[in-house]
Design a protein around this nucleic acid. Structure first.
Length: 443
DNA sequence: GCATGATCATGC
DNA sequence: GCATGATCATGC
């Protein structure tokens, strides 16, 4: 047998090796030729991962799968809810409950925690139609142990279950008895399924397993999910984030806004729905939320742009407001504006056609060229020096720079903040000139 | 038609 | 209550 590519006695090494599965299915990660079709238990992805990916045989006792590293391997399914968030497909089964021995255990050193204290969680995207080995792992694997605070609850739950068995009520156990740790049904459930013996009662009890409830898994997920809305498509993962994004928009390119609205069942609310094109864009990306985690993580600034028939943006591009009292003490490289324009941008561009119909024109990534950032820097310094000179009413106009300017941005003209000298002026922000954007978009 | 001023809906 | 992204409005 070939040398293992990880150290089975080291949890970190196991985790690092497991990352090779990210974004792939088991069948993509290892060659299962001649294996998959002969499987008896096609439902057990965890066993297959252990055998064919880790090339490891778990111990035949109550120790964790990787006994020396103390790591228990778990695969668990996730799905998406209507908001595009990943949620647990179901509870995570930890280990079967042995009613006969449970009553003699103490929490200290109990067999459940002995096995599951440290778990390597592999989240795969649940698709019913696919065999388990073709389902993709959508996040990086997570090496996970219970936080102290949770462990208290788990301990109480464990004792609740133990007490019930001790009271001769194993057959009455239900998941609702407990909070995080559940005693879930395990087994076929059919009429022929043999009942389990319990120590304090002659009544047979159905097989149950210790499990973590879906809601609990969801909290683990949301903490871990630097989730990949775009990561669920294999070609995208292999080709990178940029291709992934283009693929997302491909079906909509060239369509009118009305057509896209109909497809996504999301329509403009009223004339003043100024966030509409952005919201629509988010829907095209598959979420109803405000942020795209992958963009967040990569620091990508999403902006929507509407072009006139002639290719001129309808509007300048705004950035967050600055405070007069802050900018005087700021250095360029600490400023919000600097930090924004340093980022990679992702433009979603709509364009009016000759019939006045707005269509999704194209999407593109964009970085602001260095010279232009220097020009923006100049505008920023000018702004700062004007505020210092107590001339905050007179800030760089769009006619003063080919790249950027300063302009009001507030709720209305009464929406004011103080200058260092105490004058109240309308809130303002930096803008990129639409003419400048027009030039850049042509490149 | 352009530059500049003013404002809106949304979500946290 | 307020920042944000974006759009609307107006005067020259």
């Amino acid at each position: 047998m070939a040398q293992l590519q990880y150290d089975p006695t080291s949890a970190d090494s196991i985790l690092e090796y497991a990352k090779k599965l990210s974004g792939k299915s088991l069948s993509q990660a290892v060659d299962l030729t001649g294996v998959a079709e002969n499987l008896k238990h096609k439902g057990d992805l965890g066993t297959m991962v252990e055998r064919y990916f880790f090339e490891h045989t778990p111990p035949n006792n109550h120790d964790p799968d990787f006994a020396e590293a103390g790591v228990e391997l778990k695969t668990t399914g996730v799905k998406k809810n209507s908001d595009g968030e990943y949620k647990a497909k179901e509870r995570l089964v930890l280990t079967l409950i042995n009613y006969m021995t449970l009553v003699d255990e103490d929490w200290a050193g109990n067999s459940l925690m002995n096995k599951c204290r440290l778990m390597l969680l592999l989240f795969y995207y649940y698709e019913q139609a696919l065999p388990v080995y073709d389902r993709k792992f959508v996040f990086d694997p997570l090496l996970w142990s219970f936080p102290e605070a949770d462990l208290k609850i788990i301990e109480q739950d464990w004792k609740t279950i133990q007490n019930k068995v001790n009271d001769g009520l194993a057959h009455e156990l239900s998941e609702g008895d407990t909070f995080y740790l559940g005693a879930c049904r395990k087994g076929s459930g059919g009429p022929k399924e043999p009942l389990k013996q319990q120590p304090r009662s002659p009544i047979g009890a159905k097989a149950r397993a210790f499990s973590l409830k879906p809601s609990y898994i969801n909290t683990i997920l949301s903490a871990h999910a630097t989730e990949a809305l775009l990561l669920d498509n294999e070609q995208k993962v292999e080709a990178g984030l940029d291709v992934a994004t283009f693929e997302k928009f491909k079906p909509y390119i060239g369509l009118t806004v009305d057509e896209i609205s109909d497809m996504l069942d999301f329509h403009k609310q009223g004339k003043n729905d100024k966030g509409f094109y952005r919201s629509l864009t988010m829907r095209m990306l598959g979420t109803k939320k405000k942020v795209i985690p992958e963009f967040e993580k990569a620091g990508v600034e999403l902006k929507t742009i509407r072009l006139t028939t002639k290719g001129m943006p309808k509007e300048d591009m705004s950035f967050p407001i600055f405070r007069y009292t802050d900018i005087v003490d700021e250095e360029w490289e600490d400023s919000t504006f600097f930090n924004k324009i340093e980022q990679k941008f992702f433009f979603v561009i709509f364009k009016y056609d000759d019939n006045g119909e707005l269509r999704l024109h194209k999407v593109m990534y964009w970085n602001m060229p260095y010279e232009d950032r220097e020009e923006a820097h100049r505008v920023w310094e000018k702004t700062k020096s004007q505020v210092i000179a107590d001339k905050a009413e007179f800030l760089p106009k769009s006619s003063e720079s080919p790249v950027a300017h300063v302009r009001p941005k507030g709720k209305n003209k009464e929406d004011k903040i103080p200058t260092p000298s105490g004058k109240m002026l309308t809130k303002k922000c930096f803008w990129l000139n639409k003419k400048y954007l027009a030039q850049q978009l042509k490149k």
